[in-house]
């Protein structure tokens, strides 16, 4: 049971990271006050890739995902692995830089990005040297903290919710937002395949549902408190509403503590992504394991961490390209497995 909860929490964090970190602004940009509907539509359509991933996980379930790629794509294995590696690494850079930006812009405006990056890269590097079970256990501990903070903040917002901010309904384009939500969810779903199949299969739908529910609640709370106009204006509206807990709920300022839940999401996401990069590179032992985190640190610091303005659009475009690639790969993988089973 605990093992299942550990993997559910892992999926929960992975799926929340990109949705709350990168796609949040995009979802609100198009659907505005109808964003909650976009999340519902995106979640419903998102069940398809979840089922496909489950289908892939069930195939040759005693083998690792890297082995499965070799079986399903014996000729193009290296090309696919390389693209996947680039994809995972790029998405990690994007998420990691988003994490440092969040911290520098909202909490520690005077602290250099490099210091923040180092502080996070060390536990990330340490954690990826551990096996999957330990990563899952760490995420379980963080999950308890995250859920507690989430529920407490929700309780604090109850008397601030103004649901009339969600009106007028159905006046904005919902489908582009649903598409973005779905796109940014596909790659994280794909990440899950690298974990042991027997552990991940029973937790996949639960983790997906749990993360979707929390994302839905966060988006509806943000819109109900700030309204669509202010939500669009703020860089991190989901963080900004936490400042309002001080008014009615708390007599002291704890928004930074409550915001830790978003940091956990990105932290676990980066760990899983880099762990998968190590899987693909076959870096399983010794110093090799921390090569990727060190490269990540250097690239993030040099390319992104000094500039929070110019890379926003680039992030979106790159993320979307890789999302399409991973969606295509899930589909292709499923078809190949299906035809293989059919031939047998």
């Amino acid at each position: 049971m605990n093992n299942r909860l550990s993997y559910t929490s892992l999926i929960y964090f992975i799926l929340r990271a990109t949705s709350l970190g990168i796609s949040f602004a995009l979802i609100v940009r198009f659907a505005k006050q109808d964003s909650w509907l976009a999340i519902i539509i995106g979640t419903i359509i998102g069940i398809i890739p979840v089922l496909l991933v489950e289908y892939i996980a069930k195939y040759e379930s005693d083998k690792t995902f890297v082995d499965k790629i070799k079986i399903v794509f014996p000729k193009s294995y290296k090309i696919i692995s390389t693209i996947m590696l680039i994809g995972f690494f790029t998405i990690t850079i994007i998420n990691f830089s988003n994490l440092t930006t969040l911290i520098t812009s909202q909490f520690l405006s005077k602290t250099p990005n490099i210091v923040i990056a180092i502080v996070f890269i060390i536990p990330i590097a340490l954690l990826i040297t551990k096996d999957n079970k330990i990563i899952a256990r760490v995420s379980l501990i963080l999950f308890y903290v995250s859920i507690f903070l989430f529920l407490m903040s929700l309780l604090g917002f109850l008397n601030q919710l103004d649901l009339s901010n969600l009106k007028p309904a159905l006046t904005n384009p919902i489908l582009p937002s649903a598409y973005y939500y779905l796109s940014f969810n596909i790659m994280p779903i794909f990440l899950i395949l690298f974990f042991p199949n027997k552990d991940i299969i029973p937790c996949l739908k639960k983790g997906y549902l749990l993360s979707s529910i929390t994302i839905f609640i966060i988006i509806i709370t943000t819109l109900a408190i700030l309204g669509p106009d202010l939500t669009l204006l703020y860089q991190y509206p989901q963080f900004h509403i936490l400042k309002r807990l001080y008014q009615d709920f708390l007599t002291f300022r704890l928004e930074n503590i409550f915001a830790v839940q978003f940091i956990f999401d990105i932290f676990i996401f980066c760990v899983v992504c880099l762990k998968n990069c190590n899987h693909l590179l076959n870096f399983h032992q010794g110093y090799k394991q921390i090569i990727i985190p060190i490269i990540l640190l250097i690239i993030t610091t040099l390319l992104f961490a000094t500039n929070t303005v110019s890379y926003t659009n680039m992030i979106i475009n790159i993320s979307l390209i890789f999302s399409i690639f991973f969606a295509f790969l899930i589909l292709l993988f499923s078809i190949k497995i299906f035809t293989k089973k059919l031939i047998k």
Partner: peptide, 20 residues
């Protein structure tokens, strides 16, 4: 060795003394 080095860096960086 790596763990010791990491622990040392964490102790230095996470002491809360940055921009004290």
């Amino acid at each position: 060795m790596i763990k010791k080095l990491m622990t040392l860096i964490i102790i230095i960086l996470c002491s809360g003394c940055w921009n004290y």
